[in-house]
Computed example of a mutant assay.
Amino acid sequence: MPHHPHPHPRPAPLRRPRRGRLLTAVAAASLAVLSAVTPARAADGQITGLAGKCVDVAAASSANGTAVQLYDCNGTAAQRWSNPGDGTLRALGKCLDVVDRGTADGAAVQLWDCSGGTNQQWVVTSAHDIVNPAANKCLDVRDNNPADGTRLQIWSCSGGANQKWNAPASGGGGTTPSGFVVSEAQFNQMFPNRAPFYTYGGLTAALGAYPAFANTGSDTVRKQEAAAFLANVSHETGGLVYVVEQNTANYPHYCDGSRPYGCPAGQAAYYGRGPLQLSWNFNYKAAGDALGIDLLGNPWLVQNDSAVAWKTGLWYWNTQTGPGTTTPHNAMVGGAGFGQTIRSINGSLECDGKNPAQVQSRVDAYQRFARILGVDPGGNLYC
């Protein structure tokens, strides 16, 4: 966060800390929309799509590497799929799998032993897409060919009829008792490489501090806000990989000694931590006061307690305008759009053409997370 020369400003905006390496942008894909061709309604366990045909395991073989194809629906076990709520789609006791963990257009799918790999994770969206989040691509009928035996693959999501499916509803996941619109399975799909510190339980435990978050307006608005928050978090932390700022040379710079309370935890104690990389002594003081936690005296709580870390991110999101004119929460529930959340978090360094690559990274993550939640991302994506 930049130093503010005045003695009593509002807390300075969060700033993405400099790190030893640049974070790569999340791969983008166009938001898939409902096709004019409506796929046939699925019977229990079937996944139906192009020309009303079924996702089928070739020759009903459970051997690893068996092709998965399109075929006339026949009610056999080769076409009976389950969605147990852990992100997998299963038939014949094995998982729908992208061959060789491929992420490129045209990577084929097959049946394979369930391993927990990201190439076996699928999101069935309300828009009838089946998305592999690791590749950010959709399950696709090769060459739009409805013939029996056509191999299935992954391809950039286009909204075409050859990517539209009716699939079994999940047997798990759902919302939490708190009512959060992101299930644990969806959270894990968003952050397949996250640090163990960033737990789903820590996030849901923090929600009570700001009950309006992702709980205001229509179901669409609630999901859009959750996706927007988590997309900015993903950008700031490299996909929930970083708990603390990586450039230790910055650590002594975040103490504003002009504040009357000073830096009781030490000159170098207020470096970036948590999902929105809280930094500077005055931000630790303001967040701690709002949350009823002594973060000025014990800033290490933000890197040692997952719920506290998530609360600091929610504090900024719900209460701070930063270099913008509205809080990120109000930007999303008021219809200003995702671009204004970027402005409120890091607009002074990224918006108005200052760093379009960083803005695009945030937008890409938002579009991907919106797809996982099955919601249109809306307009005004850029700042």
Rank of each mutant, 00 (worst) to 15 (best):
A107I: 06
V363F: 07
P377W: 01
A63R: 12
S115I: 09
G288V: 04
G292V: 08
A249E: 14
W122M: 07
D56T: 00
Y382N: 08
W310Y: 14
W317R: 05
Q121S: 15
R21E: 13
C383Y: 09
D289A: 08
Y316C: 00
H253C: 02
I47R: 10
A51P: 01
G257L: 15
T76Y: 12
L349G: 06
Q224K: 12
D129V: 03
G174P: 09
T175N: 11
G173D: 14
G257V: 10
T220H: 04
Y366L: 05
D113Q: 14
P7L: 13
Q224Y: 09
P328L: 12
A42I: 02
A269L: 08
H6V: 14
A91T: 14
N144M: 07
Q224R: 15
L207D: 06
N145E: 09
T66F: 00
G116L: 09
G172T: 13
G20W: 10
D129I: 03
R194A: 10
G149F: 01
R259M: 08
P146I: 00
T125D: 04
A331D: 13
L89V: 10
N250V: 03
G179F: 13
N144A: 15
S35K: 09
Q110L: 10
A209T: 12
P11S: 11
V302Y: 09
